[in-house]
Amino acid sequence: MKNKAKINAVEKTAKSIFMICAVIAIFAVCSITIYMIAKGTPALKSVGVLKLLFGTSWAPTANEPAYGILYIILTSIVGTAASVLIGVPVGLLTAVFLTEISNKKLAAIVNPAIELLAGIPSVIYGLLGLMLLNPFMYKMEKMIFEDSDTHKFTGGSNLISAVIVLAIMILPTVVNVSASSLRAVSANLRAASYALGASKIQTVFKVTIPAAKSGIMTGVVLGIGRALGEAMAINMVAGGSVQIPLPFNSVRFLTTQLVSEMGYAEGVHRQVLFTVGLVLYIFIMVVNLVLQKLRKGANTDE
């Protein structure tokens, strides 16, 4: 009898310990949210919501400091959108190659390449962008803006470089998620299409991809999340001025603003940086919610 009571006690303790482990995730998300809000809102008061979020002038260390982060927000949106526009088609077609077209031998080359791309640390992408993309961009810049009086030369650190780096970085995510949803499309549908006289390519683009739509969308949204949150790699290639996100402009993203100024900012400047963090956090949370909706939708479809 005593033994049984002991076992019961052990069982109960085990259960509560496991439960505590599981609940840590909830605590983490809650405290991150609370901290981001608590630290991110004071600047809205001290600088003013309009001046902060819709101001276009960023001069935190000037005598009359200005803290407008509109261009930073726009850069993140434009940069993310552009990288997704490049990365998604390339990723989707690569997924099509892997699942529909390639034989096993070729897939055995492409697949590991994509896995490795996913594992390469972002600073290495940044380093290569810095050494290879930026000099190339500088050459193009010199050609294009030769006679321009208004263009501020960047030495090649610009939005395009950042977009290219981001597009490469989201590629593995898009490929993997799309490939698994293409694989999940029933062979019956492909057979029906072939039996009507459709070619392989027609079948892929008119039946398989539409049928895998929701999975592919998940990949796109995951890609958006990755691109929005990437900091170090693009901080190395995007330059450092807060400007309108034009292709050859040196720009600041929400993330790169944090990386490059958090180290030394003080006072209101620091508060504003936390607001930048909060804006980023809100974007990410929206992306996360969309993602979870998509996943739930996909589950109920099956």
Partner: peptide, 28 residues
Amino acid sequence: RKKVGMVFQQPNPFPMSIYDNIAYGPRI
């Protein structure tokens, strides 16, 4: 396969509208 059509054991309409299902063949 355009000349020799086929109907399968499991009904396998495409996940699209009835109209688009029928129009699929002519369209391709």
